[in-house]
Design a protein around this nucleic acid. Structure first.
Lengths: 224, 224
DNA sequence: AAAACATATGATAAAATTGTGAAAATATCC
DNA sequence: GGATATTTTCACAATTTTATCATATGTTTT
């Protein structure tokens, strides 16, 4: 899965950097905008931003305005950074659809906690990546495999191999191709090791092992 | 915060024990009273009882009477256990200030659900973040853990780790991910420290330690 | 049908990962 | 400041996975 994108809008570059640093450490992808119009440009251009963190006080277009314009078209979660707890402003904000406030100065922990809470609420975090073909259910998130409702235990490589097969169902895959995709690029061992893994996979998959077909002189193919 | 106190009033010890067992598993402190006058004594003596569960049918002072006397001085939520749905009685009860009825026989789930609902309504469960999975009760507010009704002592990190696992039950978690979420962003130590914590957690959790599964070559996963 | 070649299989060796206990470093509490 | 508990590190054992190889089995070609 790709990293989650967060748009940080603030006219002070120091503040942007601060916020960015903590979020990057948490493995988010942070995009910066130095003012309201840049923020709106980026937001409507990118279309994949999962969260907006926006300073209220900005020259030209202020935070409220940014919020309002985004809300015209999007329900993306918005966190506002306020100078201090101005209740009247906050009330106004909630009407505009602000999801959360963080008043400066804030601790990094608070920031990260709020961000995670919001993302969890909006189900951006941890959507389960599942795949189902012919009674074989692969859940990449849970790292589990079920066949006809029964869980089976696969080793790491076997799991990777199976998901690679299933993601490329119906496509003939040469050993070379499999090596390049399932093994690290720096693997220079024997390609025949694939055979062994295929063997184990097939046996663990029972009847469904026949989904992995041998293409003589070429490689393998997964058929659903 | 201390555990929440619930007073259970019933002349049948079997019934008291039944109710108590389920509530204790949910980390409530249960105080028993075998008859009405004992109940009133305990209630006015303790002053910290958050909920009263009271049988209607009792010798000497019946449930209605207990309810009435408590209501003279307190607005504590009261749940009545009735033999069967006698509507006339229930009407009478609501006038007395009974909050909820549970008619015998009841399922433990119903009981616990009603209790939690009432406590939430009366703000006793003030955002007390607790979760329960497979007999493991974690109360983030109280920072306590119970397994099958027995409290276990966890260190700070162990507690954080367990809650992280439980909040992400069923999801395969890489060491990197665990470090980023349970440890501070500024931790750059050895990832193997996780193993040590997992080891201690497992041993402290006894049989339930098996809920933390090792995913070879990948990380760990909590299964409920 | 035999030769030549490709894949399957089982056993085994090598490598990688995790479990564990103890010691060292840190933090916390009197 | 010392005692205690927690957290981290480390070394080694135990375990699991992965790679290799020899051999068996199966396909294709001649």
């Amino acid at each position: 899965m790709d990293r989650i994108k967060i748009l940080v809008v603030d006219d002070e570059s120091r503040m942007r950097k601060l916020v960015k640093d903590f979020l990057v450490k948490k493995n988010y992808e942070v995009i910066e905008a130095a003012d309201g119009s840049e923020a709106l440009d980026i937001f409507f251009d990118d279309r994949e931003i999962a969260l907006v963190i926006c300073d209220v006080m900005m020259p030209k277009i202020d935070g409220w305005q940014v919020c309002k314009e985004i809300r015209e078209y999007s329900k993306v979660p918005i966190i506002m950074l306020t100078a201090k707890g101005d209740e009247r402003d906050e009330l106004q904000g909630f009407e505009l659809g602000v999801d959360e406030y963080i008043s400066k100065p804030f601790s990094p922990k608070i920031l990260v906690a709020r961000v995670e809470a919001i993302l969890r609420r909006s189900n951006v975090l941890e959507e389960s990546e599942r795949m189902e073909m012919n009674g074989i259910v692969v859940d990449k998130t849970a790292h589990s495999v079920m066949i006809e409702g029964n869980p089976i235990e696969l080793s790491f490589k076997e799991f990777e191999l199976l998901t690679y097969f299933m993601e490329n169902a119906g496509i003939a895959l040469s050993r070379e191709k499999i090596l390049n995709n399932v093994w690290n690029y720096d693997y220079f061992g024997d390609a025949r090791t694939i055979d062994t893994h295929v063997k184990k996979l097939r046996s663990k998959m029972g009847e469904k092992g026949e989904c992995i077909k041998t293409i003589w002189g070429m490689g393998y193919k997964f058929i659903a």
